[in-house]
Amino acid sequence: MKPASFDFLCPETTEEALAALAEGGGEARVIAGGQSLVPMLNMRLARPALLVDIMRLEALRRIETSGDEIVVGAGVRQAELEAWPTLLRDLPLLAAAFPCLGHVQTRARGTVCGSIAHADPSAELPLSLVTLGGAVSLRNRKQKRRVKADDFFVGMMATDLAEGEMIEAVHFPKARHGSGYAFREVGRRHGDFAIVACAAVADDRGLRLGIAGVDDRPRVFPLPALDDDQFDDTINDIAWSLNARDDIHASARYRRELVRSLGRETLKEASRCRA
């Protein structure tokens, strides 16, 4: 269980990194914290020809407030965002999600953007980003672009990231006054990828429920009020729409039931927080 060989580049500027990625095409990959990539290297599931280590690019290591967004650079470790002093005020959904996210030891190294790039359909950070309606800043040698989170995740570990591109930052909309947020998940063990994870937002636009672990990417849906006649039908239809599957950890039916029950509870909690 040792990685296949690869070239390694530790660029000092973003431009240098982008040039290398452009040159490497599909065979070059960014490495940041390595917590998702290195297991795949060790198992030789991933065999890039070049790794570009972006953790020395100071410009990417910032958490900034920009208007009504919190912008998290590609070099920001999960533990750094978790310890960010105003996290609870500005990103209460993430504050609730972090304890579910791996373990202290992996959050210490893993980056926020690395988890987004990995696009595991059960992962907490992609779910949070999609639920909050955030966005991803991508950049290649020639241009920058910004993609809505919902468009960024296109399938199982598949994203809109093109060859030669890297994630520069992710944008989390700041919590608005009078909004409620909640995060819950059911996994087999503490710290495991979720069987089903739910993130909920209650605000003046109504209720939104994000669901991970069922479809091949995190999904978010608007829902009617909890006491609306249509609520049960709606959440039930959402559960059915997610293309749930059996695997060794849970049946498709179990996942649908969790969407119904955990989804409702998470929305309830978000509504309570709002009030």
Binding site: G34, V38, M55
Partner: peptide, 12 residues
């Protein structure tokens, strides 16, 4: 910080 040595490349 506590970290997994098996998920860290020596070069990192």
């Amino acid at each position: 910080r506590p970290a997994r040595a098996c998920l860290t490349l020596a070069q990192q």
